[in-house]
């Protein structure tokens, strides 16, 4: 083989690769193009319209999404819930993961295994018990110390938030991440007389930005997308999250496709922004967390 054909072969390979990427990206994005097309199509011609570019594009569906239902309030609710969960996860999960990775204590392996195993618990197992626990939460919503008399945490933003505060998967990924970082830094810091807390906060956590990105994205999207739990625990519209607000356009026998898709786009943008801002850290964080150890 001459240098020239190798070069030509490489160029061919690169061109094929780009072509394949383009095809894949188009295939993946076509349904979204459709979604956007529906969002900009006037209601009366929406269903079954096959033109990807609407004849008379309109922003009426976006206005409907923002005015017909209280989407802004729902966005606010979801943002509060998601950010509280992101903050809690980012504080607690890496801390626990670090301890599991660095500080061996009796039974730590078993505890970690149990925590990992909880990720396999189907939502259908815990939905009803969690609901009843929320109802009998002591000293909330008119309840007495023993959890009776009132409605507990039901129909509050707190109840929507609580089950997402610590994700078992985030603890596991953190443990993997810190295990992959090795113990040399800790030993050096220990020689300088630093305690475990200090070592964690000052040495390891600042190096764990990619991990934080992973934990943040997982907890943000997990909370943002949750549907069944807020559906059964909230009753008044002032506590609706985005997913609950949106399904009002998905009514039995009266699906309003235009506003539904416009609303779906609006509620996807924050998640997309979170992902784009952290994309690089996210992938490298996963590379450390998910695979090593």
């Amino acid at each position: 083989m001459t240098a020239r054909t190798i070069d030509g072969g490489r160029r061919m390979a690169a061109a094929t690769r780009i072509a394949l990427i383009a095809v894949a990206a188009i295939l993946v994005l076509v349904p979204f193009a459709w979604m956007a097309s529906i969002a900009f199509t006037p209601a009366e011609q929406a269903f079954g319209s096959i033109s990807l570019i609407p004849d008379n594009p309109t922003t009426a569906n976006f206005e409907a999404a923002l005015t017909q239902i209280d989407l802004l309030r729902a966005l606010g609710n979801s943002l509060v819930v998601a950010l509280v969960c992101v903050a809690a996860n980012c504080l607690v999960a890496p801390l626990a993961g670090y301890a599991f990775a660095r500080l061996k204590f009796p039974g730590s392996g078993v505890v970690l295994l149990v925590i990992v195993a909880t990720t396999a618990i189907p939502v259908s197992v815990t939905l009803i018990p969690l609901f009843l626990m929320a109802k009998t939460f002591p000293l909330a919503g008119g309840n007495d110390l023993f959890g009776s008399g009132g409605t507990g945490l039901l129909d509050t933003l707190a109840v929507v938030t609580i089950p997402h505060l610590v994700g078992a998967m985030n603890v596991f990924l953190s443990r993997q991440y810190f295990a992959g970082m090795g113990s040399e830094l800790a030993e050096a810091a220990r020689l300088d007389g630093a305690g475990e807390w200090r070592i964690y906060w000052r040495v390891y956590l600042p190096l764990a930005r990619p991990l934080i990105a992973v934990v943040a994205i997982f907890s943000f999207t997990g909370t943002w997308d949750d549907f069944l739990w807020p559906l059964v625990t909230t009753t008044s519209q002032e506590h609706y999250t985005v997913q609950l607000a949106l399904v009002q356009f998905n009514a039995t026998g009266n699906v309003q496709y235009g506003p539904l898709m416009a609303g779906a786009i609006l509620i996807t943008l924050p998640v997309l922004a979170v992902f784009l801002l952290n994309q690089r850290s996210f992938i490298s964080g996963l590379a450390e967390g998910g695979t090593k150890g």
Binding site: N77, L83, A87, G141, T151, L154, T156, L157, S236
Partner: peptide, 19 residues
């Protein structure tokens, strides 16, 4: 942003008891 939201959330949750 997180601090602000946490503060907001605290208010929101405090007031969020059943009517």
């Amino acid at each position: 942003a997180i601090a602000l939201t946490a503060a907001l959330a605290a208010c929101g949750m405090g007031g969020g008891t059943a009517e």
